[in-house]
């Protein structure tokens, strides 16, 4: 549920974000097109497409899922990697914007672009190390993930649905939405307990979005688990039994 800023906690305390669990993301792109759909159909849409039915079709998306391969065969890991604006706590894209169109909201930490102010100079996109911003080629303004501000505060929606479109769409619930400054939120807990990490920490941008790493479950078997009393082969007389004539302690000791 959307953490509507709590006045008591004071502004600046809330930082809404997505926590993306790479342990379960299967790379299905549901978050990609549901995001496109929501933001295309909403107030701020459309998100334009160039050559939609021609060569090299290309359009504006706020969220993309990429794929990486780690390691070499047969020890290869395939990593599906969704990426949208990370709503950095120190967003380098904001101070560089000459018009103030890019801003970070004090009340919930969402980084937004005011399309009416944006002059389309692209400078903010240069200032984002993550490639999270895309210039809409038709509207000529800079766009990016809004964390679905137009959903998460929409009082007309049932509370359970006051979440970003991509979060509701994700079939593996790999996208956790919440206030990462609220230690009790599911998002903060996931970061804390599952080793949530930030992308490119080297630049001090302090992305609010975090990623949860892959975890491996293995089964440790002890050899004696294969040799048990209840082995069904016994019932059918199939467990090899030593022949009566084979040496035994009886042969050497009388007690």
């Amino acid at each position: 549920m959307a953490a509507i800023p709590d006045a008591d906690k004071g502004f600046g305390m809330t930082q809404l974000a997505l926590v993306i669990d790479l342990n379960v993301c299967v790379g299905c792109h549901a978050c990609v097109t549901s995001c496109k759909q929501w933001n295309h159909s909403g107030e701020a849409g459309p998100l334009s497409d160039a050559n939609p039915y021609g060569a090299e079709p290309s359009g504006t998306f706020f969220n993309r899922v990429q794929t990486y391969e780690v390691g070499e065969f047969p020890k290869t890991e395939t990593v599906h990697f969704p990426k949208s604006c990370l709503h950095c706590e120190e967003p380098p894209c904001v101070p560089v914007c000459p018009t103030g169109a890019s801003y970070k909201r004090a009340e919930d930490g969402i980084v937004l672009v005011d399309y009416d102010k944006c002059i389309g100079c692209k400078y903010c996109s240069w200032a984002c190390p993550y490639g999270a911003r895309e210039l809409d080629e038709q509207q000529k303004v800079m766009k990016k993930c809004t964390l679905c501000v137009d959903r998460i505060y929409d009082g007309k929606l049932p509370e359970a649905e006051r979440k970003p479109a991509c979060v509701l769409a994700c079939p593996t619930s790999a996208r956790i939405f919440g206030d990462i400054h609220d230690p009790d939120s599911q998002a903060a807990r996931a970061i804390r307990e599952q080793g949530g990490y930030a992308l490119m920490p080297e630049w001090g941008t302090q992305p609010a979005n975090h990623y949860l790493p892959r975890r491996k479950t293995s089964i440790k078997l002890h050899p004696d688990e294969l040799q048990r009393e209840d082995n069904p082969l016994k019932v059918d007389g199939k467990l090899p039994r030593p022949a009566a004539g084979e040496p035994a302690l009886d042969d050497v000791t009388s007690w």
Binding site: Q66, Y68, E69, E77
Partner: peptide
Amino acid sequence: TAIGVKHPRIAQIAQG
């Protein structure tokens, strides 16, 4: 550092 996986061999296969 881009994807946060520590491994010397990381190759991108798709950019979506």
